[in-house]
Amino acid sequence: MAQKKPEKLIDEKDVRLDGRGLKELRPMKIEVGVLGNADGSAYIEQGKNKILAAVYGPKEAHPKHLAIPDRALLRCRYHMAPFSVEERKSPAPSRREVELSKVIREALEPAVFVEYYPRTSIDTFVEVLQADGGTRCAAITVASLALADAGIPMRGLVAACAAGKVEGRLVLDLDDIEDKEGEADLPLAWMSHSNAITLLQMDGSLTLDEFGQAVNMAVEGCKQIHGLQKETLKAKYVAVKEEVEE
C-alpha cells in the first residue's frame, strides 16, 4: 500500500509533517540487555524505526583463517526483516545491506579496542524490524550500545544521525518520506572521543556551504543521542550496582 505523497513536507512555520521542528530529532526509546543469549544487546525505537542489535564475542574466530594475529576481527551484519518495509523485502542480503554492513562496521571499529583481543572475533548483528528512514544511523547508535552492554572496552559510544535538505531547508533526522522526496540525505556517525566522524555518506545535492552546515547540524544531533545513550547505560548499570550494595 503506497502512501500518497503529501503536497508539502514542511509548512510555512517550519513545522514538518510529523510535527517536528527543523532541528528536532524524532522521539527515541532505547533499552539495553534485551536478549537472553547474546553477550550484549540493545533495542532502539527512533520514530517508527524499530531495531534490535546483539553482540556475540569476543570469541574464537570462525573460520580460523580470518583471525587477525594482533587484534580482534570485528564483524557486522545489517539485515532488514522482510516485513520491515512497505513491499516485502527478500530475506537474502541485498547489495545495499552488504554495503551498509561494511560502513556500519567501519563506523564502530574506531571506538572498539580491538587490539585487546587478538585472534578473536566480535560479531555484531543488527536486525531492522521496522524501517522508516535513517536505519543505518539508528543501527550504529544501537549496535554501539550492544557492544558496551557486552562489556567490550571502547573509547566511547558511537552515535549516529542524518541531516539533509528538504524543500530547500536543512533538517535533522530525516524520516523515510523526507529522505525519498528531499534533495539530500547525509548520514553521519560521531564519537565523543577525539570529536571523530566515523561514518559519513551523502546522496543528493548540496553546495559546499550547505554541506558544512549539514555536517555541523548532524554532529549536534549525534551529541543529543550520545547523551541519551549514556543515560540508558547508567540507568541499567547504576541501578544494578545499588541493589548489590544494599
Partner: peptide, 15 residues
C-alpha cells in the same frame, strides 16, 4: 555541488 560522499576504512575524520 556535492552529490555523493562515502567514508571508508577503520579510522575517523574530524569536521
Amino acid at each position: 555541488k556535492i552529490c555523493a560522499l562515502q567514508k571508508g576504512g577503520y579510522g575517523y575524520f574530524t569536521t
